[in-house]
Design a protein around this nucleic acid. Sequence first.
DNA 1: CCGATTGGTCTGGTGAATGAACCTTCGTCT
DNA 2: AGACGAAGGTTCATTCACCAGACCAATCGG
Lengths: 179, 179
Amino acid sequence: MALGTDYELQDCALARALEVVGERWSLLIVRDAFYGVQRFNDFLAHLGIPRAVLTARLNALVAAGVLRKEPYQQAPLRHGYLLTDVGLELWGPLYQLSRWGGRHATPGGPHHLFAHLACGTDLDLIGACPACGGGPVPPAEVTMRPNPAHTGGRREDPVSRALVRPHPLLEPIASAAAA
Amino acid sequence: MALGTDYELQDCALARALEVVGERWSLLIVRDAFYGVQRFNDFLAHLGIPRAVLTARLNALVAAGVLRKEPYQQAPLRHGYLLTDVGLELWGPLYQLSRWGGRHATPGGPHHLFAHLACGTDLDLIGACPACGGGPVPPAEVTMRPNPAHTGGRREDPVSRALVRPHPLLEPIASAAAA
DNA sequence: CCGATTGGTCTGGTGAATGAACCTTCGTCT
DNA sequence: AGACGAAGGTTCATTCACCAGACCAATCGG
């Protein structure tokens, strides 16, 4: 976000958080990173975002310590963008905001459902496993799958197609796994 | 937010949520509503937001069903902006995002601390009361107070000054209570 | 009648987002 | 060698949202 290009005087941690992940596409990029998207062109195809904006956001998220660049080949040097530990801690707010959107702003219901990898139970509202108890399940122990009850169109880019099959969070999507 | 003025094709509840609360000031306005801010001029003073933008955001949040207008006097008709039930459900994501910002993006530490009204225990990371157990505490049962350990300046508008004393969420702030 | 309070609208200027085209480095195919 | 394509950007003109500040309207107290 950055209001007045930064909310400098807001006496609130929320404003600070929004400086980092509040700009137009930032949180969607982070979400895609949780989904296993790592490469520039995969973010581009899945989000439909202008290239220049994607470049700017990825760099900003790396500078903020949410993402890090990790080389995946040397030949022509190429790197993917992966979540740091700081970035992984965004799973809680991101999941809850997503659930809120699913309840109140998504006609046709949510497109994806999230379950505990260990036991297959769907996560509750706060991201915990009702069967296993305890606190919120960390993202590495979560799998996502499309919502069969969802009505309405789906996107037709390679990333969206890869996400049709059930898939643990953070695991690189098929498109990138081909490398 | 609204990307291309709406993320129309994003197959994700998160994008829908961001259409509602993702624009530049929206989430800060909702946060202020939790703090007990209700009046146009109080939002204006506390946020330092341009009047035209505040008007647009408040109308958008009302249209989205997050806020509602409630008359507080008839003489010259005046109304405040209050959270609806849908808006109240944003407390979870908002609190968690705020905590994330406090951990990772706020030098000097968080400006406000949140405790369970019933027992005075500070809330944990997911917004639950460690002493009372159970799930996240609903906002009506939370009080906020300034963080005594916070270093750095504070704002000097009337709303910020009213928030210096401990204060239950959702209770109208002193400035508005004068009416 | 004068001014203050509240909650706006209007306007002109600036910076950021957008979409399309272009560039660079390498690998592969023929 | 030359053509082509993939990956990851950069550059550019246009549009659009944000910004600050001025202005407006209804009502009340003095």
